[in-house]
Amino acid sequence: MGELLGVAVLGAGHMGADHIRRIGRRVGGARVVAVADPDRERAERATAGLDGVALHAEPEAALESPGVDAVIVASPDRLHEAAVLAALERGLPVLCEKPLAPDPAGALRVLAAETALGRRLVQLGFMRRYDAGYRRLKEVLDAGRLGRTLMLHCVHRNVSSPPGFTSAMLISSSVSHEIDAARWLLGQEITAVTALRPTPSGRAPDGLQDPQFLLFETAGGALVDVEIFVNCGFGYQVRCEAVGERGSARIGEDQGPRLTVDGEAREDVPQDYVVRFADAYDRELRDWVAAAREGRVTGPDAWDGYAATAVAEAGVRALEAGVRTPVDLAPRPALYPDA
Rank of each mutant, 00 (worst) to 15 (best):
V84W: 06
Q188M: 09
S161T: 04
V7A: 02
S173T: 06
E97D: 05
Y336S: 11
V32I: 11
L4I: 07
S65H: 06
R78F: 13
E313T: 15
E253W: 14
A113R: 12
W184G: 00
A43K: 05
G106C: 02
A30S: 07
W288D: 03
F126T: 07
D77Y: 01
V243P: 04
T260Y: 06
P337K: 07
R157L: 15
V311K: 10
A168V: 01
T191M: 05
H56K: 09
D279Q: 15
W288I: 03
H14F: 11
R136K: 10
V224A: 00
D262A: 15
Y281D: 03
L121S: 00
A82M: 05
G147K: 08
P257D: 01
R128V: 00
V33R: 08
S201D: 08
P38K: 12
V275H: 11
C240F: 10
V323P: 12
R293S: 14
A74H: 05
A132W: 09
G244H: 13
V122K: 12
E3D: 15
G147Y: 09
L335K: 04
G118I: 10
L146F: 13
T115K: 11
V175E: 01
D37F: 13
L141A: 03
L88G: 01
V122T: 14
E44D: 06
V274K: 11
F126D: 11
V53R: 05
A105T: 14
A291V: 02
T218A: 00
A87H: 02
G256P: 04
R332T: 06
R317E: 11
I228D: 01
I179V: 15
R250V: 10
E217T: 07
G6S: 10
S248A: 15
A62H: 08
A143H: 04
R296W: 02
R239Y: 13
R120T: 01
D304F: 01
G235L: 07
S160E: 09
A116C: 08
Y281R: 00
R129Y: 11
S173G: 07
E189Q: 14
G164A: 04
D210G: 12
E245N: 02
L117D: 03
A30F: 02
C96V: 13
A107E: 08
S75P: 08
V155E: 08
A34L: 09
Q237N: 15
L100W: 00
G133W: 08
R129S: 09
R266F: 09
E189R: 13
T166K: 00
H80W: 02
P331R: 12
G6R: 04
G305I: 02
R120C: 05
P162Q: 08
N231A: 00
L137I: 08
L335D: 07
P99M: 13
A83R: 12
D328Y: 11
L196V: 09
S201T: 13
D304V: 02
V159E: 08
A278R: 14
D328L: 10
